[in-house]
Design a protein around this nucleic acid. Structure first.
Lengths: 189, 189
DNA sequence: ACCTGAACACCGTTCAAGT
DNA sequence: ACCTGAACACCGTTCAAGT
């Protein structure tokens, strides 16, 4: 399609900027420059910065949910699924030392409007629920609550691995080693 | 002492602000208001925002190093030491949903001057080296490289637990559950 | 030695005005 | 329906000027 949807163009530019520099550093004037309009025009599509961030987080979560569902329908092997999960975060690092959109927003949590915070909660939910499904593929004596907590722990550990790798200049090898250490310890199946 | 050191007063106010809102949200004018001077005065003590952040990160790392050394000299029990380590991050959460100074700076890594980045690396080093010492208290057949990687993994996992807990509004109970899940899995000794 | 007011180019946001 | 210029109060930074 050659039709140009300004709204989508704005969101694409903004998503890349937030993953790279975060919410506070996101600039309407910079987006405008990249899109080729004036900054006041951005406000026509997204009245406030919070509205834009909410739309970004919503789309990001939806995209991840679709990706994860695809993984699970492609293979019921636990290891394949977990590799696909960690691969999502690895990919962000590989692409110019970028962070998970919701990971970097989490750090700026207190500066976020309530709508964005709600989307962050949903992102965590999507990850945790999917991880519970995957962990349940392996039959074990573990209770539901234990699996739930392990899923949240896996999510937190992977976000942390990305955060630390980023603070070391986008150290993808270090990220891989940390994930491997999680597996060795038994945190990852 | 009743002597007021403006430089220290600035650093104390700024540290709290960065742990709460991050580097980009840190405002010289806000600091000035809290300290009771004009914002131009802050620049007398710290020429740039990067200089201030560097001083903050340096002092923060030194304080942690002293705290960790104290832990290890107070008890050679591995569990006590690890509890002390995770307790440091737990404490930041408890105090008004604050983050580890270097954790939140890690998220803003690409916006940081080189000096601040160097201090972040040192913070990671201090944590990892101390964790290696603690892990080595337990005699095991593990090689040095393996212990090193486990230490980095523990550091990353704990930072991640804090990040996720914060994104859930300062969920200290969730943080505790995640740390407990790390222990159950065997990532933490 | 330490502080200040004023200026500069940035920022999000608003709004009347344009097509 | 979509865009814009101008204004507002913010921001870090600089600097000449004050004590």
């Amino acid at each position: 399609v050659t039709t140009i949807d300004t709204r989508q163009t704005i969101m694409n530019a903004a998503r890349a900027m937030v993953q790279y520099r975060g919410y506070n550093a996101l600039s309407f004037r910079e987006i405008a420059k990249e899109v080729g309009v004036k900054s006041a025009s951005i406000h026509y599509h997204f009245p406030t910065k919070g509205d834009l961030a909410t739309a970004l987080a919503r789309r990001y979560t939806d995209d991840l949910a679709a990706y994860l569902d695809g993984l699970l329908s492609a293979s019921q092997d636990v290891h394949d699924c977990i590799d696909g999960f960690t691969g999502f975060f690895r990919g962000a690092l590989l692409k110019d030392n970028r962070m998970c959109l919701c990971g970097i927003l989490a750090a700026e949590h207190v500066d976020l409007p309530t709508d964005v915070r709600a989307e962050l909660e949903r992102f965590t939910q999507v990850c945790v629920r999917w991880l519970v499904k995957v962990l349940s593929l392996k039959k074990s004596a573990k209770g539901k609550a234990v699996v739930q907590r392990q899923a949240l722990a896996i999510f937190a550990a992977v976000e942390g691995a990305q955060l630390v790798a980023r603070s070391r200049g986008g150290d993808v090898a270090g990220f891989d080693q940390t994930i491997e250490a999680y597996r060795t310890a038994g945190l990852l199946p």
